[in-house]
């Protein structure tokens, strides 16, 4: 893995954690407390299907991803690691 990729992924993860805490109104949790490999739904962070809606919106608006590409991609929503990897590989040039 090249250093640019490592830096980009790290930045995406940081942004993602901040957005999750803010947009999902996660109480009593700080972005830096979310582990990269923590399971997001069910056990782990304990998110539910309505939180998934917010995550989809984040992926659309903040990273320019298309929701149609996310259908049947259960693997993408597993953890911060998997989300960041998907964003890194698929994001478009949006502000």
């Amino acid at each position: 893995m090249q250093s640019n990729e490592v830096q980009d992924l790290a930045q995406i993860k940081k942004t993602l954690k901040e957005l999750l805490v803010a947009d999902l109104s996660l109480e009593d949790i700080k972005p830096e407390e979310i582990r990269d490999d923590e399971v997001l739904f069910g056990e782990g962070l304990g998110l539910d299907s309505l939180d998934a809606v917010e995550i989809v919106v984040i992926l659309q608006r903040k990273f320019g991803l298309e929701v149609r590409d996310l259908e049947n991609r259960k693997d993408v929503f597993y953890s911060i690691d998997s989300l960041a990897k998907y964003i890194y590989e698929n994001r478009k040039k949006v502000s």
Binding site: S49, V53, V56, L70, E71, K74
Partner: peptide, 15 residues
């Protein structure tokens, strides 16, 4: 479906 079908729902609304 995964996450109660919300991904499919969002996709359908988007389309």
């Amino acid at each position: 479906n995964f996450l109660g079908g919300v991904i499919e729902i969002m996709k359908a609304i988007d389309e």
